[in-house]
Computed example of a mutant assay.
Amino acid sequence: MPVYVGTIAPTQPSQTPAVVPRRPVDPGRPEAVWIAPDGTQWQLTSDAELHFTLDAVTGWGAAPINIVADPHPRGGTRVRHIQPQARTITWPLRVRADTHTELVHGWRDLARAFTQTRRLGPGRLRVMRPDGDAREIPAYYQAGFDGEPGQGHTYDTAVLSLYCEDPYWRAVAPMSTPYGYGGTPVSYLSPYLTVSPSSVLGVTTANNPGDVEAWPQWVIVGPATGVVATNHTTGEAFTLTATLTAGQTATITTDPPTVRGPAGQNWTGNLNWPGARLWGLQPGLNDVEFSVAGAAAGTSITLSYVPRYETA
């Protein structure tokens, strides 16, 4: 006898979409390199090295300052002067190896890379961010290669103390702007500012993207008989009176303040003392002006500077 089976309604698909687990966003991490005075580079944050940085770095924030204040008759004090101070960066490194001999060799090589600053001058600690930004600071080794109690067999820890006489971090590459002779003055947008034989080179804007003052260098190529440089933003200026023949070069630096002639001779006395001010560039836009006397074909001025920052 036949058996009748009812129709089964098809199952409706779920209206709730499946939850697909998302990969966590990689936050990235900073990388650090020590550039020793002899030019060798030492990766401080690479897992492929015998040494790596521990998560206890300090001293790479805003520059320390000293405040000089005078008592005020009505109570409290009044700030008279604020002076940036040298900074000390603490950078702990763990050195580990498979054997004691390998540890000793790695420890000695790393120590040599830092301690040579006593003889060769400062090295550079460079910090690079995941977005490609990089800043560095000159530093001297001060202490830290003492080792830790209970270590020293196949691993040991160096808690480095790095002394930075200038507390501000710097851009890795300088910024520079060329100014060249063009005969008839034209707009600086086409493509450079121009100088005419005895007139103003022009007023332009120098942008300092840093957090603090940047101290520039000028390289002047003759012919020229005098240069007047003015920063209208700060109201400071200086005049250099000296003769440069075609192709001769004078260099003016502001940190430290020096003027060198074509043969390296000291031309500091050729400035208009006591009124000369070898000015710096304030953070942001600076309206600067150059005048060159005796300019002709081949005359040029290159303004270069390294932006400085409060933090790494």
Rank of each mutant, 00 (worst) to 15 (best):
V219S: 07
W215Y: 15
T7L: 06
P2S: 10
V292Y: 09
A48I: 04
S14L: 08
P64F: 05
A139H: 07
R96G: 01
I65N: 12
P274C: 04
E213I: 12
S14E: 06
L303P: 05
A48E: 10
L303I: 01
A276E: 06
G275M: 12
R170P: 10
S199L: 14
G123D: 00
H100M: 09
L240V: 03
V25S: 13
A295M: 12
V25P: 02
C164F: 05
T177L: 13
R124C: 05
G210S: 07
P92V: 07
G152P: 03
D166N: 08
P122Q: 10
A111I: 08
L281E: 01
A295E: 07
G121I: 06
T230K: 04
D156R: 02
L271P: 09
G247V: 01
V172E: 10
Q265K: 04
T11W: 11
D47Q: 12
T53Y: 03
E102F: 04
T302D: 11
Q142Y: 03
Q116G: 08
Q85V: 05
G182E: 02
A32I: 10
P138I: 03
R308V: 12
A171L: 05
S176L: 05
N66Y: 04
V79K: 09
Q83F: 07
R119P: 03
G123Y: 09
W273Q: 09
R126G: 01
L50K: 11
R124S: 08
Y179V: 05
V288I: 10
V57M: 07
A263Q: 08
G247L: 01
E236L: 15
L201H: 07
M128C: 15
T117R: 07
R260F: 04
V227Q: 00
T249R: 09
P84K: 07
R108V: 06
I65M: 15
A48H: 04
D156P: 00
N208R: 01
L244M: 09
H232P: 01
P27S: 13
S161F: 01
P191I: 06
T45C: 06
D38I: 02
T258I: 15
A296P: 05
P283F: 00
A250F: 08
H100W: 10
N272G: 00
N66L: 14
A97L: 06
P174L: 03
P2I: 03
Q151C: 12
D70I: 13
E49G: 10
L160G: 00
G261Y: 02
V195C: 09
L189M: 15
Y188C: 15
S161M: 13
V306P: 00
A246I: 02
N270S: 13
D98E: 13
S300D: 08
N272M: 07
I67Y: 04
R94V: 13
S196A: 10
V19I: 14
R112W: 08
T205E: 15
T254D: 02
G39K: 11
T45F: 06
T88W: 04
L201D: 08
G284S: 07
Y4P: 06
T53I: 02
G264Y: 00
D166R: 03
R124A: 07
W273L: 13
Y309P: 14
L193R: 12
S46Q: 13
A312E: 09
V3Q: 12
L50Y: 07
